[in-house]
């Protein structure tokens, strides 16, 4: 009898209290699910949030801190904002990258969220953020720009030289930009951006246009992989990037195009921008640990000789 009464009490209690209908529990309609955001940093931080729902307009919150701006934007929406599915985050000041880690950890932004740096330009009032995101993804898929996301960019910002490679919108169009502490943003050429796709080994084009024996033609790429290695020659680190490609078409013409793209990428990032966005530090730490541990950060990699070789299977 006692057990029966206890069971009945438990059942009634759970029916009454465990329904999940507490007012403080947010329902789907009580939240604004944000698809993209734009961050402008002048004297205050201005945060514009673009929700997934097409019928709902974007709202802007201004505040001294990121949390302030977010709270004010949330007030403008009249509901709690959820950034967990954020697809694109645009920002116009290089030093705002320092605030991004708080968004990842505190606001639980998706680590695969794309970042876009607005270089000397603003987003238009009626900017189609979905189109912008899709365009950025297509550019990556086509191997025009290297694949990046919030997580990779934060990792690069935490590396020794604090330089990160970020897609950027310039007056000329979409490109890649290097943001490093204390330096001006460095915009890479189209050729260097394409070369970085090969040197970072994350994404590559499915075809490239080459000038072969029969004039302009396509070289189809079926698969490609990158192998980085390093050795020390006369106290200078020599890094070899071996790109092994499986494809069809004029191999010699393709080799010339890819090598010229890689050389442009190496020259612009290492020699001109003085930023390691290829992974030289990691490569040196792995293949030449003794040399790496003995050298000063600044003297190791900028003197490095990089050789790009393209091989075909």
């Amino acid at each position: 009898m006692k057990k029966l009464v206890s069971a009945a009490i438990c059942l009634i209690m759970s029916i009454l209290f465990l329904t999940g209908c507490r007012r403080s529990v947010p329902e789907v309609r009580d939240r604004a699910y944000i698809q993209s955001a734009a961050l402008y940093g002048k004297s205050n931080i201005s945060l514009t949030l673009y929700p997934f729902e097409e019928e709902q307009k974007q709202e802007t919150g201004i505040g001294a801190t990121m949390a302030d701006a977010l709270e004010n934007a949330s007030t403008s929406f009249g509901k709690e904002v959820f950034l967990g599915h954020l697809e694109l985050l645009c920002f116009d000041k290089a030093d705002l990258t320092d605030k991004l880690s708080s968004l990842l950890y505190e606001q639980r932004i998706s680590p695969s969220c794309k970042l876009l740096f607005l270089y000397d330009t603003d987003l238009p009032e009626d900017c189609d953020m979905t189109l912008l995101t899709d365009r950025l993804i297509m550019e990556e898929e086509n191997g025009h720009i290297p694949e990046t996301d919030l997580f990779h960019i934060l990792s690069e910002k935490k590396s020794k030289d604090e330089a990160a490679l970020i897609p950027a919108v310039t007056k000329e169009g979409l490109s890649m930009c290097i943001l490093s502490s204390g330096n001006k943003p460095y915009i890479l050429s189209v050729k260097a951006a394409q070369g970085l796709c090969w040197l970072r080994g994350k994404n590559y084009p499915e075809r490239i246009a080459v000038n072969g024996e029969k004039g302009s033609e396509d070289y189809e790429i079926h698969s490609a992989k990158l192998k980085l290695s390093a050795e020390i020659n006369e106290n200078i680190p020599c890094i070899t990037a071996r790109i092994i490609i499986k494809g069809s078409g004029d191999e010699q013409a393709a080799k010339a195009v890819i090598e010229s793209q890689c050389n442009a990428a190496a020259r612009e990032t290492i020699k001109l921008a003085k930023a390691d966005v290829i992974g030289l530090f990691k490569c040196l730490a792995r293949y030449c640990p003794e040399y790496y541990s003995k050298q000063e950060t600044e003297t190791v990699k900028w003197d490095a000789a990089i050789q790009c070789t393209v091989e075909f299977e």
Partner: peptide, 23 residues
């Protein structure tokens, strides 16, 4: 986690926050 690891107070939780298999 790579270079984010030294700053991670709880590495497992940071790993879970960046390991989201579905968008």
């Amino acid at each position: 986690l790579g270079s984010l690891l030294p700053d991670a107070q709880y590495p497992f939780f940071l790993l879970t926050s960046v390991s989201q298999p579905l968008s």
